[in-house]
Write a protein that binds this DNA or RNA. Structure first.
Ligand SMILES: [Zn+2]
Ligand SMILES: [Zn+2]
Ligand SMILES: [Zn+2]
Ligand SMILES: [Zn+2]
Lengths: 154, 154
DNA sequence: CATTGCAATGTTATAACATAACATATATTA
DNA sequence: TAATATATGTTATGTTATAACATTGCAATG
């Protein structure tokens, strides 16, 4: 599996999926929340909150403020549509929302492309480590930084 | 293995170990760097940069500034004596510096105690995931948040 | 023993990331 | 419609981290 960016149809499907989930779960996918989600997924790479802020300000031709963006992000994260990458203070779209609670990531330091890598074997291994330490997991941050195939060949 | 805090003798050993490593590797363990390391390891729990700043200002009876603390932290991280927990913007001491490049963590959200959990099986699993994705790892953030045994029983 | 170079620290300012608090608007629903 | 809840606007501020440049102290070189 290479770390290519998403195709237009994948993006559209992803947006549509979020709309459907919101509809069937009676979640208010407001204009702002939808805009923020689209900005994040269409970016292909992890995006920063203030980049989203600039983008949304440009789109709407009027300045938005940090709380607007952070609130939308909070909504999207709470519902599993977006993840925060703590190691780089950035946000990415989830391409399999509701599939599982946690997602793990590969992040290329060179081209900034990222990839979700949520194998079960990894999940199991983390789970076993927790059990071995009598620890009850509530959430996991796994962010693997390095170089993707393309970038390590250059 | 429970998540108890370190004993006084463990702390002393940890500080002594860093001194020895610096001596034999000709690393300048200056007064400030030593102070910051001691503040971090003696804290037992993840500590924030500005808490270190306050502590060091009190100890020396004169105000220190952010760059002073961040520079010391950088030195300590570079040499593997301290880790940053990205999920909580905090710093912890390493109790087996140079043993391996990456450390993984269990962090109790209730009592804030943390535990390094660097099993090889976990490392291998992460390594396999990277290989499977043709990805070359440079550094890994694995932070498992939840509740320790004591806190989940309360 | 200058002088030069370098590593570390001091200092000031500001950048980057995030939230508090309260006002206003918009949508539900009684 | 009135009451309630949900979402957004707005201002200000809190928190985390770094840039940039001055100063110090110490050791290598001539
Ligand atoms: Zn995901
Ligand atoms: Zn790449
Ligand atoms: Zn460690
Ligand atoms: Zn605990």
């Amino acid at each position: 599996m290479s770390m290519k960016s998403k195709s237009t149809s994948e993006l559209k499907a992803s947006i549509h999926r979020v709309e459907e989930i919101c509809k069937s779960n009676k979640l208010g996918l407001t204009e702002i929340r939808k805009q923020v989600f689209e900005i994040i997924v269409k970016n292909n790479k992890p995006i920063k909150a203030y980049e989203i802020l600039d983008t949304i300000s440009n789109i709407n031709n009027k300045p938005s403020h940090p709380p607007t963006v952070y609130r939308a992000i909070d909504f999207l994260i709470e519902n599993g549509f977006v993840h925060k990458l703590n190691s780089i203070n950035s946000f990415v779209g989830c391409f399999h929302p509701k599939a599982h609670k946690e997602c793990y990531f590969l992040i290329c330091k060179k081209c900034n492309i990222y990839q979700e890598c949520c194998d079960d074997s990894l999940k199991d291994r983390i789970s076993k480590t927790a059990i071995h330490n009598n620890f009850v997991i509530s959430n996991t941050t796994l962010e693997i930084e390095g170089h993707c195939l393309d970038c390590s060949q250059k």
